[in-house]
Nucleic acid binder design. Structure first.
Lengths: 260, 260
DNA sequence: TCAAAAGTGTTCTGACTACACCCATGT
DNA sequence: ACATGGGTGTAGTCAGAACACTTTTGA
């Protein structure tokens, strides 16, 4: 199973390789240095940044395609990965840009070439641990990088709207679905967990009440270790109770109050 | 704007009419005689019931396609209609069935015919008022009918799973998103509203607390009328405060508690 | 007059809020 | 010692759960 990201050769005869008209875009989020980052890449030919995305193999489930793209880009499989919206408007396809890309790959497209047709894109969001993600570049991509959510560069086509919709969806779900497990290392401190929640929600939480709430739902175990940070009391380390976490992911938990 | 549901003639030259590989399936729900019903139809050639669905015109937004299909089937436009999941597995396409359909329409498909390719389907759910829905039949459809959610007949391909996923999604959203407006006539009684919630949730609610809660969120106005039902006190009639309702639909409200 | 169902009031509990207070650590 | 930030305790408030009680209607 070493299916490739589409390159020039693949695209040239893609009619039988990929599912028509359907693409996948991934909003891959990680937490680093106090803020949420999203993974972006830039194709050699394009001057705009894009979300990591790709096409669906003809014999591949769409969800699996999203997983494959994710694994290819950040090197982690079986991540927290969720559908959040289908972007299906006609006006989202940028024919000129696509032509430019084909041209740069030395392809002179016949009329109605697969790549030039209208595409709808399934949006997925993924949460990954920054330190575990090893971003990779292939020959079609010039640059890959993590961008601060509130300092995004100009994005290709509707990718800006896709990012926005993703973060909105996560904000809504954060009260029901436990997160953090995917964004943090095995051992973490309570302030670290809280900073993630604050970054996603966009406002500050009461340090003390947050701690109590998190401990009371029972998804987190306190360890017998502390981490020395600086000139203050060393915070405890915690780990997720994997079993209960999975359970809560499926069944839903009431984690956060609803009123701001 | 009188685009048609695909029929034999349309399908024959559909390559340029419809978006490839993408279809739309609608789980249309209504409340009638104490239970939730879902709209199903049966094609002449098929022996299995299907969800109302269709294809996306080449110059049509996917969301608009869902709206068009809905309008065609129940005669109501601008309904409460929401994406809930993309069904994108390879194994969901039933090639033999599709061949049978084409054959029955007198089409001998060349290899790789549009209709025989793999399709992914965007699932939408819609809530409609039973009395306002006028279901219509076209020449390709043999029968259309409302089916009780827990007495569904055998459904085509993965349509059973689609219905299930739809109702699960609604159950999760019912606590945040106000519903009822779309399922009830202009004027309704509190028990009527409560029965809908109970039907969706699958369990009974406390009559008295439900009433208080509904009134306290302010989406509902009590009218100066009552409806005489039987040998008991006549319940008040209520109507939705449309303005606040729209607002709540967008911003979200905390309507129901989370714990069962 | 009685059953059935609607409407209102009350108590109890538990969760969230907003703090005050104490503890550990490095400079 | 003191600033910085982590951890615990507690009173006040508010919403939901449970249930008693009253009201209206038709048979």
């Amino acid at each position: 199973m070493t299916k490739r990201y589409p390159t020039a050769e693949v695209l040239a005869q893609a009619n039988d390789t990929f599912l028509d008209s359907v693409s996948v875009d991934c909003v891959i989020l990680a937490f680093h240095q106090g803020s949420l980052k999203v993974l972006l890449n830039k194709f050699k030919i394009s001057d705009k940044w894009m979300l990591p995305g790709g096409f669906v193999h003809i014999d591949e489930n769409v969800d699996d395609a999203a997983n494959r793209i994710l694994k290819f880009r950040v090197g982690i499989a079986d991540l927290y990965l969720k559908q959040f919206h289908l972007f299906g408007n006609c006006d989202r396809t940028r024919k000129e840009e696509s032509l430019k890309m084909l041209d740069s790959w030395g392809i002179t497209p016949e009329n109605g070439h697969w790549f030039l047709k209208r595409f709808v894109s399934m949006g997925y969001y993924a949460l990954v641990e920054y330190s575990k993600a090893s971003i990779s570049i292939d020959e079609s991509v010039e640059e890959v990088g993590w961008y601060d959510l509130d300092k995004l560069p100009e994005l290709y086509a509707d990718h800006g709207a896709i990012v926005e919709k993703a973060i909105n969806t996560i904000r809504i779900q954060i009260g029901i679905v436990p997160i953090g497990y995917e964004l943090l290392p095995e051992k973490f401190t309570m302030p670290e967990l809280r900073l993630i929640y604050e970054a996603i929600l966009g406002y500050e939480l009461d340090r003390r009440n947050f701690q109590r709430k998190m401990l009371s739902v029972g998804l987190i175990n306190r360890l017998d270790e502390k981490r020395k940070n600086g000139a203050h009391k060393a915070p405890y380390l915690y780990s997720f109770n994997r079993e209960k976490y999975e359970e809560a992911s499926l069944g839903g938990v009431h984690l956060m109050p609803w009123t701001h």
